[in-house]
Amino acid sequence: MIIRKNHKILVQGITGKQGTFWTREMQTYGASVIGGVNPKKAGTEHLGVPVYGSAVEAAKQDPFDVALMFIPPLAAKAAALDACAAGAKLLVCLTEHIPAQDVMEMHAAAAASGTRIVGPNTAGLVTPGESFAGIMPAFNKRVFQPGPIGVISRSGSLGTLICLNLTNAGLGQSVFYGIGGDPMIGTTTRDALEILDQDPGTQGVAICGEIGGSMEEEAAEYAAGMKKPVAAFIAGRASPPGKKMGHAGAIVSGGKGDYGSKRKALEAAGVAVADVPSQLPSLLAARLTGL
């Protein structure tokens, strides 16, 4: 699912410092925020929208499409289960350091309710010129411009750098899909690639991967059958094995998840792999036709 202007967004944890800051940015950008959740402030208004006691309560009053969580790690599971019970189509989970067994319960609940989880530990989703949900600088016009390239990233900071490079090269973005830096995420690189492949507004895809796990290898299998051009940058070539490089999912252990395996799989699938992020726009431009 790609976030559109008409998608109704509910912000869980809207009254907190970060919830307030980013919700205001989203509203200014044009996102349809229909309300927020804080059980202690139910019945009040915040940023001009109603605050509900739960997502389930919110859905009864004003059905929504997307739940966005500004919730601390140990409370994240309850909030996610609430969003699933409320029938959210999409749940954007920004929270990092949620206990893994809680994350598994979240995924089980989402599978039962038909909710797509993006994250945990994502920086969110941006549809330039339309809407955004999360903690990305969608409003910074040097970074984000509407255009033909779909971007998939495990990292918010690296995703920002990649979009900046694309915009500098005159390539705007159709969608920024932040999938998250955790090892057990709801929407994988391959899932996001499939979504962008089916999006008529996306003409080419940039994948920002990282060492650790096998998501890039699985995405390569899908990319091999795609007509749209795909280019990638994989972070972590210079990282030592056996260390968690900041993200819980970014670790090479027992020779698995290393840079070489990912690059090989992507190149074998016809994906151009950049050595540094600045090479990515030209690799994509060379493969786009009629632009």
Binding site: S155, I211, G236, A238, S239, M245, V276
Partner: peptide, 26 residues
């Protein structure tokens, strides 16, 4: 640097341009 992805990428770029990173620090 800020962020795990950007910090790793900075290390990669240093290596790519012939240098060697002294640390990861986010």
């Amino acid at each position: 640097a800020n962020g795990a992805g950007l910090t790793m990428t900075t290390m990669d770029a240093i290596t790519h341009f012939g240098g060697a990173p002294a640390n990861f620090l986010e």
